[in-house]
Nucleic acid binder design. Structure first.
Length: 416
RNA sequence: GUGGGUAUAGCUCAACUGGUAGAGCACUGGACUGUGGAUCCGGGGGUUAAGGGUUCGAACCCCUUUACUCACCCCA
């Protein structure tokens, strides 16, 4: 029986892992610049957390979540998204007493869907959550953070912004929309007819040509926003303008999670195929309360790491190299012993080095040095041991320069 | 969950309308007993995804299963 990985769950091999390390390191760096601090929560949570937080009726909870029994006790779930667990931790540890909090996380999420380009059963999200501030200034700042992060990676995206209303204006709008769509049921496609009850906002998103006339004339949420939501949206846009963040108002942008209110946004890329969203998020002012905490506004986003990696790859952005500074080529037993000793000294000095312990043909060792991504190679044999001197070979230029072995650490430790 | 496409060496692919399974790259040995990317010669590697059927004969045709992949749905 041949073993293979679980469908939709992928390995990141050493050759590509540099890209992931780059994305993660930059996230930590940039998020810290905006005052966000890292939080780590379990991959497993009570299933009820997601049912209550994300929404019982959403596809994510309803059909995509991995749920299992833990020895008969609780019903547990592999987290399908990061916000609910973060909010749970926020409440459980009473973090709300310390005023506004800005947190971020990196981690694996799980959804049991049919895999396709940019969509996997285990995938990784990089997300930010900010608690305790209802002001639109925060929305603008957080969206700018995300734009900043993507911009530093050279990724070109489109930012789509919308308001999905709040408890004051959305229910009335939804009722109107539902009855409007119901009245035009016959003119809509089968998918849309299903969606009328389940998620009427989604109908507006339909791409089927025959549905378009009905949708064009449908009531628009943007026209029905209450004064609070309208002002909020205007302020967010003004904030983005002030920060020089380009965005597009997208009245049909919908989020798939129940907890979103007011601000909803999405960064999309055309390098991704059908799954165009690199990152998405929005405000969730009632979520903390829903999950049992004190009323606390919040806003957050999640970015799909696999999708970002796909974009970087499509851009032809090279994977940052990670090779040793020097690779020792062992010419004979005396050289091998010396190499081991020298390697120890260099490593104590913080200089990365490597060698091929098989000590085979020089040709093979040089090939190994190149494959390891080493900057220099240094042949070590009885002659070098005797003279205390060797030739440091730059593998890129193939130029050799004499070097005293006891000065190697100083030579390689410095810049260049 | 629903469709479409694909499946031959580690990778990329050949194999004439069914006739003994090959090449390039990679790996490895040698030409070169202390200098890699070039050249030349040699070597290891395959139940042709799996199972069944048709046939004198199947990588090729038929059926089933599985995996991968793209799209729908949905979302990061």
């Amino acid at each position: 029986m041949k073993l293979s990985g679980v469908k939709g769950m992928n390995d990141v091999l050493p050759a590509e892992v540099g890209r992931w390390q780059e994305m993660e390191a930059l996230a930590r760096e940039v998020f810290a610049l905006y005052g966000y601090r890292e939080i780590r929560t379990p991959v497993v949570e009570p299933a009820a957390l997601f049912a209550r937080g994300v929404g019982e009726a959403t596809d994510i909870v309803n059909k995509e979540m991995y749920v299992f029994e833990d020895k008969g006790d609780d019903r547990l779930a592999l987290r399908p998204e990061g916000t609910a667990g973060t909010v749970r931790a926020f409440i459980e540890h009473g973090a709300y007493v310390d005023g506004p909090q800005k947190w971020f996380y990196l981690g694996a999420m799980f959804r049991r869907e049919r895999p396709q380009r940019g969509r996997y059963r285990q995938f990784h999200q990089i997300g930010c959550e900010a608690f305790g501030v209802a002001e639109p200034l925060l929305d603008a700042e957080q969206i700018a953070l995300l734009a900043d992060y993507l911009g530093r990676l050279g990724v070109r995206t489109t930012l789509k912004l919308n308001s999905v209303g709040d408890g004051e204006c959305r229910p009335a709008y939804l009722a109107d929309l539902r009855s409007y769509l119901d009245g035009h049921r016959a003119a809509l496609c089968a998918d849309c007819r299903d969606r009328i009850d389940r998620n009427p906002l989604r109908v507006l998103d339909c791409k089927v040509a025959s549905c378009q006339p009905v949708l064009e004339a449908a009531p628009r949420l943007l026209d029905r926003l209450c004064a609070g939501c309208r002002d909020h949206l205007a302020a967010v846009r003004a904030g983005l303008d002030a920060l020089g963040v380009e965005h597009r108002l997208e009245p049909r942008l919908v989020r798939g999670l129940d907890y979103y209110v007011r601000t909803a946004f999405e960064f999309t890329s055309d390098a991704l195929g059908a799954q165009a969203a690199v990152a998405g998020g929005g405000r969730y002012d009632r979520l903390v309360e829903t999950l049992g905490g004190p009323p606390t506004p919040g806003i957050g986003f999640a970015l799909g790491a696999e999708r970002l990696a796909l974009i970087l790859e499509a851009m032809g952005r090279p994977v940052p190299p990670r090779g040793p500074a020097v690779f020792f080529v062992l010419a004979d037993p005396a050289g091998a012993t010396e190499a081991l000793r020298l390697a120890g000294a260099l490593r104590r000095a913080g200089v990365a080095c490597d060698l091929d312990a098989r000590a085979g043909k020089l040709k093979t060792q040089f090939r190994q040095a190149e494959r390891a991504g080493a900057r220099f190679a240094l042949v070590l044999g009885a002659a070098e041991v005797a003279s205390g001197e060797g030739k440091l070979k730059d593998l890129a230029t193939r130029a050799e320069t004499p070097v005293r072995l006891d000065e190697l650490a100083a030579r390689l430790g410095g810049p260049g």
